[in-house]
Design a protein around this nucleic acid. Structure first.
Length: 161
DNA sequence: GCCAACGTTGGC
DNA sequence: GCCAACGTTGGC
């Protein structure tokens, strides 16, 4: 079980947009950074916890709790010349970019950047680090617990006994 | 709109 | 493989 913080511009896909989607699940299109892609490809598992983060907006911050809802697969927008995420150097035969499905579990009152920075126990949270630009960053269990208050167990599925 | 930080590209 | 130029991210 791993935890992640995933950035989305609310103008593209807000947490409300995701909640309004079927099963509150959206394909996480548009990742065009190799490190972020590799996280999805190599480290993400279905059921991983996700902090849904709004970036490039009036109130940047964590706005929801979500989970990884699929394994990684090719991001179709890379093949679409009409898409802003089109990548002419990629091809269906050798896809360069991947996505996972993300399912929102619940919205939370926005935890703004200043509010996050005010908590010493979150000082090492990667998204707070200077110069951080990665749209997907791993979150340590202690940070997940501090933010969600929900302990370190899986955020979604009941544990089968 | 500004600009710091970082990633990518491409000439050599 | 180096590194300057350029593009992008994202908070402010």
């Amino acid at each position: 079980m791993n935890y992640w913080l995933m950035k989305s511009e609310p103008g593209e896909c807000s947490v409300d947009d995701a909640l309004a989607a079927p099963k509150a699940t959206v394909p996480w299109v548009g990742v065009r950074n190799y490190q972020a892609r590799n996280f999805m490809r190599d480290a993400m598992r279905v059921g991983d916890g996700v902090l849904f983060y709004h970036s490039s907006c009036d109130q940047p911050g964590i706005v929801g709790i979500a989970r990884v809802a699929s394994t990684a697969s090719p991001d179709p927008t890379q093949f679409d010349p009409a898409s802003p995420y089109y990548d002419a150097k990629s091809s269906p035969e050798a896809p360069r970019w991947l996505l996972v499905d993300v399912q929102v579990l619940r919205k939370i009152p926005t935890i703004t950047l200043p509010a996050l920075r005010a908590r010493p126990e979150l000082a090492e949270l990667l998204v707070l680090k200077k110069g951080n630009r990665l749209s997907i960053t791993p979150v340590e269990p202690r940070h997940w617990q501090a933010i969600t208050g929900s302990g370190a167990e899986a955020p979604a599925k009941k544990v089968r006994s």
